[in-house]
């Protein structure tokens, strides 16, 4: 870990941004409708889903179109825990995340043996199988209609109860878990595992020559990505009070890929930036024109064509231009 990463200047900027993000429920409604606080929470959740795509695509070089499967399992885990098993708030959330991670652990055994388009195809196939099973099991899953949830409080002690019906509480609850996940990713991606993953992404045979096991590195990344998507799904079920097979469909996975690419694949916060940009545009355009996807499509085409490193790349270039160029050392004749 370089000392530059934890320089006082960077830490101060990070702390200021964190404070600003944590204070969203108080300053944002003073500027726009309080509805945007919920949208901010939704962006955080979906960014976790995009981060799961990014972990595979941006760091392991595996383009998955099946992350919606784990998102959906996370959401249904919460729904089943609350509606069918009576597990309560935390038990249901735990069930959702655990089920998604376990599902990724099983699917990963088959999926990460493949790379390139074969990997993409098998992830779609896994997703479609579970989607069809979920839609078909209507009595259990609600099929196309999904399941609506009644949320219990998540904290109750001595007459004090906290629940997600309060907008600020809900936002902070989401931020806490999303923040934990981003923090964990930050640590993992700077560990030997993270560097090994990048080495495998760049050149798997060469990585093998220095003792890195491509299969296990990819497998671990796949399971972690399943965990992130499952956490996103569990949070989304709690946020929307709803779980649906629609969230398992492969087009939802495609959205995660788009958010990642537009934001900047292979960067920690690229997916968050991409998700935020495209969800804000969706909210703004869809309320005035129902065919908003056409506009989003054009924006995606422009981004991929003219800024292939996404918003994160644009920001990086801008910062580099603003930084004073170190003077060149005198040339020795």
């Amino acid at each position: 870990m370089s000392s530059d990463v934890l320089s006082p200047g960077r830490l101060a900027i990070f702390a200021a941004v964190l404070l600003l993000v944590a204070a969203v429920p108080w300053w944002l409604p003073a500027l726009v409708e309080d509805y945007w606080v919920d949208i901010a929470a939704e962006i955080l959740i979906w960014s976790l889903f995009a981060a799961s795509v990014n972990l595979l695509y941006g760091y392991a070089g595996l383009l998955s179109f099946g992350q919606a499967l784990y998102f959906g399992v996370g959401a249904y885990g919460v729904a089943f825990g609350l509606q069918h098993f009576g597990l309560g708030f935390w038990g249901s959330m735990g069930l959702g995340v655990t089920a998604a991670t376990a599902m990724a652990a099983v699917a990963g055994i088959f999926a990460v043996r493949l790379t390139w388009h074969y990997f993409s195809i098998i992830t779609i196939v896994f997703g479609l199988i579970l989607y069809l099973l979920t839609v078909g099991a209507k009595d259990l899953t609600g099929g196309d209609d999904g399941l609506s949830l009644s949320l219990p409080p998540f904290f109750s002690l001595g007459g004090v109860e906290l629940d997600l019906f309060d907008q600020a509480t809900q936002y902070l609850f989401v931020l806490f878990f999303v923040g934990l996940c981003y923090g964990a990713m930050w640590v993992v991606l700077r560990s030997p595992f993270g560097y090994g993953l990048k080495a495998v992404r760049e050149n798997a045979p060469r990585a093998g020559l220095i003792g890195l096991d491509a299969f296990w590195l990819r497998y671990a990344a796949f399971v972690m990505a399943g965990f992130l998507a499952g956490m996103g799904g569990a949070l989304f079920a709690l946020f929307s009070r709803y779980a649906s097979a629609q969230y398992m469909y492969w087009t939802v996975s495609g959205e995660g890929v788009i958010w990642t690419i537009v934001g900047g694949a292979g960067t920690l916060f690229g997916p968050l930036i991409g998700t935020a940009a495209l969800i804000v545009l969706r909210e703004e355009i869809s309320s005035i024109w129902e065919h908003y996807l056409m506009v989003l499509g054009v924006i995606v085409i422009l981004m991929v064509t003219f800024a292939p490193r996404g918003f994160a790349g644009l920001i990086e270039d801008a910062v580099r231009r603003l930084k004073p160029t170190p003077s060149a050392p005198p040339r020795s004749e």
Partner: peptide, 8 residues
């Protein structure tokens, strides 16, 4: 008329 996030 609504206060738009983009306008902001």
């Amino acid at each position: 008329s609504r206060r738009s996030f983009l306008q902001l």
